[in-house]
């Protein structure tokens, strides 16, 4: 029996869907059987980023309302045998699915897959409640911005009230030079405010956007730092102890990050 991980952030546009796609791809690269679920009903994106948009026949809402079997709605990734996607509906809204229905679907999927990765919509309303309904673990994505950290804090508070393992943190779109100049929050500061375990740091990279636009998650291209970061996150999810990557430009920070890591293990 696998485990279900919800990827959430509260604030929109911090990179939940990109993170979902890349963690899913990285886990598949490591040979795990993975199913991605897009719960952003009405504003689905995960299929686009995975490049599977033109294969959608049935969706999550169809499954919830028993218009098709669960396996009929699943789309097999074109690159991997072991990676599947359950897309969201584009025509309905978040209230088309109830948390109990989500829970049932996730439980069913966990029988067949090692990892069920749930992409959560922005906000804390119905969509969020649906997304976390079946989850065992959670990952909170934040950017090094005050507003994003504030929302992540709110979300962590809500997740702590649920029957979900303590959330883990991914800091996305980190700009090393801005952090160096003190123009954005630094890693230590974010971690000290949110007080949750840091799962990984993904640096800001235009290549990520380019790859997403092409429907090929960046994790497939091993040469980029972002790809390496996602692969490391996947290995950490599997329980391996992988040190945090250096953020090159800044030696002081490198030391800090190393120190931080040393402190945690």
């Amino acid at each position: 029996m696998g485990e279900a991980i919800v990827i959430t952030s509260g604030k929109g546009g911090v990179g939940k869907t990109t993170t979902t796609a890349n963690i899913g791809t990285s886990l598949a690269l490591l040979g795990k059987k993975v199913c991605l679920i897009d719960t952003d009903i009405g504003l689905r994106n995960l299929d686009v980023i995975m490049g599977l948009e033109n294969r959608i026949i049935y969706d999550l809402v169809d499954v919830a309302h028993n218009r098709c079997k669960l396996h009929q709605a699943l789309i097999k990734d074109k690159r991997f045998e072991c990676l599947y996607l359950l897309p969201a509906a584009q025509t309905k809204d978040k209230s088309a699915v109830k948390p109990e229905q989500m829970k049932k679907m996730v439980t069913e999927l966990k029988q067949d897959y090692d990892y069920v990765i749930i992409d959560c919509p922005a906000g804390i309303e119905q969509g969020f409640k649906n997304a976390i309904a079946g989850a065992d673990k959670s990952i909170v994505v934040t950017n090094p911005e005050t507003s994003s950290v504030r929302d992540a804090d709110r979300i962590i508070g809500l997740l702590e009230q649920e029957d979900i393992e303590s959330p883990k943190l991914i800091i996305n779109r980190l700009k090393a030079h801005m952090m160096e100049n003190g123009d954005s929050l630094d890693v230590d500061e974010i971690v000290s405010i949110l007080a949750v375990e840091l799962l990984g740091i993904v640096t800001d990279d235009e290549l990520v956007i380019r790859a997403s636009n092409r429907g090929e998650p960046i994790a497939l291209n091993p040469d980029t730092k972002a790809s390496q970061a996602y692969r490391n996150i996947a290995r950490r999810i599997l329980g391996e102890s992988v040190p945090l990557m250096s953020l090159e430009e800044d030696k002081g920070l490198l030391k800090k990050v190393k120190q931080f890591f040393g402190m945690r293990t």
Binding site: R150, R154, G157
Partner: peptide, 14 residues
């Protein structure tokens, strides 16, 4: 006159 002790983080919105 009592002191209530609470051990947790009070996060945004709580």
């Amino acid at each position: 006159n009592e002191i209530t002790s609470v051990s947790r983080m009070i996060r945004s919105g709580q």
